[in-house]
Simulated assay, not measured.
Amino acid sequence: MMNEVRMTLRLPQDLRDRLSAHAKSERRSLNSELVYMLEVGLRATGVDAESPGGDSTSPAPLRGKPDSSPA
Rank of each mutant, 00 (worst) to 15 (best):
L11P: 08
A60C: 09
G64W: 13
Y36W: 15
E26A: 11
R16C: 03
D48S: 14
L11M: 14
D14H: 14
G64H: 07
P12G: 07
V47H: 10
A49R: 13
N31G: 12
S69C: 00
D55S: 06
D55E: 01
L19V: 12
L9V: 11
E39C: 05
L9Q: 03
R16K: 15
R10L: 11
H22R: 15
P59R: 13
R63P: 00
D55T: 01
G41N: 08
G54L: 06
E39A: 11
E33D: 05
L15P: 02
E50D: 10
P66N: 04
V40H: 10
L30Y: 02
G54T: 04
Q13P: 02
G54W: 07
R28K: 12
R6Q: 14
Q13S: 10
Q13G: 01
L11D: 09
Q13T: 05
S51Y: 15
L9P: 02
P12D: 15
S32G: 14
D67K: 01
S29Y: 00
S25P: 00
V40G: 00
P59M: 09
S29F: 02
L34C: 06
E33L: 05
P52A: 04
D17E: 09
E39W: 15
G46H: 12
D17Y: 08
R10S: 09
A23V: 05
M37C: 09
S25H: 12
G46K: 10
H22T: 11
V35L: 08
R18T: 09
E39Y: 15
A44L: 11
A49E: 13
A44R: 15
L15K: 08
S68C: 04
K24P: 00
R16G: 06
V35K: 14
M7F: 13
A21M: 05
L15E: 11
L19H: 02
K65L: 15
D67I: 03
S58C: 06
E39I: 08
G41F: 07
D55V: 05
V47F: 07
L15C: 02
S58F: 02
A44M: 13
S69N: 10
L62R: 15
V47A: 01
Q13W: 08
N31R: 12
T8V: 11
